[in-house]
């Protein structure tokens, strides 16, 4: 997905994991994913650079569809659709 497309996404749940470093954002994502239904969109905010690599790997393994990310000033927004 392009950044423009990502910016237009209405997420069902936003998980703010900016206050924690690796593996915090991944743990936050795992805990939060139970709160949404299959097919819904989760957005993760992370200030940890490694998260951009970790979340796609996590999605790959569990089966969620990773949509992509875009950078804000001091953090990134990552998007995925729950399996």
């Amino acid at each position: 997905m392009t950044t423009e497309e990502l910016k237009n996404i209405q997420s069902n749940l936003v998980v703010d994991a900016r206050g924690t470093a690796c593996p915090g954002p991944l743990l936050a994502a795992k805990k939060a994913i139970g709160e949404i239904e299959s097919g819904e969109i989760m957005e993760i905010l992370s200030a940890d650079e490694g998260t951009k690599n970790d979340i796609p790997r996590w999605c790959d393994k569990i089966g969620h569809e990773y949509l992509g990310f875009y950078d804000e000033d001091s953090f990134s927004r990552l998007f995925l659709i729950k399996e």
Binding site: C22, P23, L26, L27, A29, K30, R57, W58, K61, I62
Partner: peptide, 11 residues
């Protein structure tokens, strides 16, 4: 512990 947590998060 970091590796364990990451693994546990990945089910």
């Amino acid at each position: 512990m970091v590796i364990s947590l990451a693994a546990a998060a990945m089910d």
